[in-house]
Structures are given as structure tokens and as C-alpha cells.
Amino acid sequence: MSGIRRATFLLAAVLLLFGEPWSVLILLPDWPAAVTIAGTTIFAVAALAFPALMFLGHGPRQNDTAAKVSDVTLGTIWVLFSWSVLTHVLRLALDLSGVAAPTRPRIVAAATLAVAAVLLVAGNRIAMRVPPVKPVDVRIPRLGKGLDGLRVAVITDTHYGPLDRTRWSERLVAKVNQLEPDVVCHAGDLADGSVAKRRKQVDPLGGVQAPMGRFYITGNHEYFGEAQAWLDHMASLGWDTLHNRSTLVERDGAQLLFAGIDDPTGAASGLPGHGPDLAAALDGADPDVPVVLLAHQPKQVVQAQAENIDLQISGHTHGGQIWPFHLLVRLDQPTLSGLTRHGPTQLYNSRGSGFWGPPFRVFAPNEIALLTLRAG
């Protein structure tokens, strides 16, 4: 996409995101002039400032204050936009019921604002909480009896970023340890920003306890920053970094291979040796040993199917994070969350433990998945 086309697209997106709720909340209700002027000014200032704040916050400068403001603005305007569109149904119902203007558009405006406020408050509480545990049994026919009942805790998409969530990170680790898992996996999108800026939030992960292995792979967001540095830092915390490689675990004579591949973004990162390489990850693997593959994006299951992988663990989608964004996510990914089958491969896709950008989760709760592997 050329620079002019990209700028035109972004301008149209901003105008639509801010213009629709402005029309529902400010223009159509025919408020007194002072209210209309004040409301229009607020929307205009927000629309003008938003792109600049996003660039300052998430561009090369990574200004955390700008990121916080732009992220809250993005989440708020997305919810307002979505429900401004939906409340046109209410407008039609009121019209058919004979409710006249200006009462009709003012009821619609009040309903839109009320719903948005409730969803944003509840969505923030969900996003900022320590995730609940989601237990899932996964039957792997080739799994040996010695590993029957293996407990695998999955965290992913922690996205440590502009908001200091060090305390949240400590509480997350404490909750994972309470589960007494055999294995813990982090399926990517660890942090947004450099190791120097985010290590305070990430370092509590060094306290995760898992006697049979702690495995980490890169997500796409590592490649917006310092992917290799994050791999090195997680290794320094005692995590086994599955950078296109695998590790064999064994119990009571039964074996299971944990393999990991990079996010597809790594291929264009310019970093030598980065990008998904499943052949390298499985190099030398015994074909009779079942495989659990960590791959950040669910759509990487296409490669997993081709290699008859038993189970793929992914994240990336956040379950859509803020409804109805899941509709756009489904255009790119085969699934949003949960356990699904794709030919010979089962895929568990986590909704993620944290959030990216807007500190809200609307109809897409976060989770710590606890997968209990069952022998066939």
C-alpha cells in the first residue's frame, strides 16, 4: 500500500470511528447550541489528537504517556462506534412506536452512552484482573500412559507495556504456581517495548515453577521491538526458548516432544535465523513420539497439519478482545479460542492472559488455560 493510499485509509477510518458516535450522541439529538458546540469540540480534538498520540506512543519513540492516552481513546471510541451503529435498531423501533423528535434521538444517545459506559467499566475490570483458570482435557491418542494426566499451564499475550503491571505479573505467577503444573508454556507476545523498559514487569516470570519445563516462543509483537533480546532475557530467567527447536520430556517411560516455532512476522524482521521453521524444530525427532507445538498464530496450524502434529498451542487472537472486533480477527484466523480439530491436529487457542493497547476486554475474557493431557 502506497503512502498516499495508507494515509487516505487512516483518515477515512478516523473519520468513521469518531464521526458515527458524534452524529448519534451530539448531532442528531438537537441539543441546545452550547451542548452541541462543546460536544463537537471534544470529538474534534480527540479525532485530531488520536493519530498523533498513537504514533508517539506506539511508533519509534514509544512514549508511554502518549500510548496510555491513545489506547484508552481507541478502546472508548471503538465501543462507542460499535454501539452507535447498533442503536440505530432502537431508533427504528422508537420511530415505529411513534416517539417523535427530539425525544427519539435523545433516548438513542442516552442508551448508547449508558451501554458504552457499562461495557468500558466492566471491560477494564476484566482486562486488569488476574485471569481465571480455564481447565481443558485434551486426549492425545499417541500419548504414553506414563504421561497421562500431564498438566500444562498456558499463558500468552501478556503484552507488558505502558501500564506498569508488575504487581499483576507477580499475582499471575502466584496463581500459575498454585495450579502445580508439570509444564508451563508462554505462547508469545510477551511484551511491547524493549527489555530495558519492560523487564521489571517480565522478571516475575522467573518465579514460575514447573518441574518438567517452562517453554517460551516469540509472537508477532516481539518483532516490533527486540525479539532476540527477549529470547535471551527469557532464557536468563530460566525459560526454555523454543526458537525453531524442541525439547523432549519424559515420565515413567513415556515421552512427549515440546516444539516451538517463531511467529511468521520473524521472516521479514531482518534478524538472521528468525521466522517459522518447523522442519528445524522437528529435526531428529522420533516419529513415534507425540508432539505439542507452540506456534503463536492459530493459522500456523496449516503447517502443523502437514507434519501430523498432535497438538498445537496458540494465542494471538485475544478472543477478539473488544467485541465485535472478533469479526475482523476471523477474517485472518481459523479460530478465536478453545479446542478445535484440524485434520490430524488438535489446536488449543488461548484468549490470552493480558491485553494489547486498550485496557479493556469486552465479551472476550482473559484466561490461564490448564490443559490436562490424556493418553489415548
Rank of each mutant, 00 (worst) to 15 (best):
L11T: 13
L15C: 09
L17I: 06
D30F: 00
T36W: 02
T40Y: 00
I42A: 08
P51G: 03
L56G: 00
L56W: 09
Q62R: 15
D64R: 07
K68E: 06
V69C: 07
V72K: 02
G75D: 09
R91T: 04
L96H: 05
G98I: 06
A109L: 02
L119M: 13
A127E: 12
R129K: 11
V130E: 10
P135D: 13
P135G: 05
R139T: 15
L143Q: 09
G146A: 15
G149P: 06
L150R: 08
L163D: 14
T166Q: 15
R167Q: 15
S169Y: 12
E170Y: 14
R171V: 11
L172H: 14
V173M: 12
A174Y: 10
K175Y: 11
V176Y: 12
D182Q: 15
L190M: 14
L190P: 09
R198A: 03
G206L: 05
A210L: 01
I217N: 03
A227C: 06
W230I: 02
D232R: 13
M234H: 09
A235W: 00
G238H: 04
D240M: 09
L242K: 08
S246G: 10
L256P: 01
F258T: 04
F258H: 03
G260V: 04
P264S: 05
G275E: 12
P276F: 09
L278N: 07
A279M: 06
A281P: 02
L282I: 08
V292E: 06
V292H: 04
E307D: 13
I309E: 03
I313C: 01
H316F: 07
G320N: 08
Q321N: 12
W323Y: 14
W323A: 10
V329D: 10
L331E: 12
Q333N: 11
P334L: 10
G338H: 03
L339R: 14
L339G: 13
T340H: 15
P344T: 12
Q346R: 14
L347H: 02
L347F: 01
F360E: 04
A369D: 06
A369E: 01
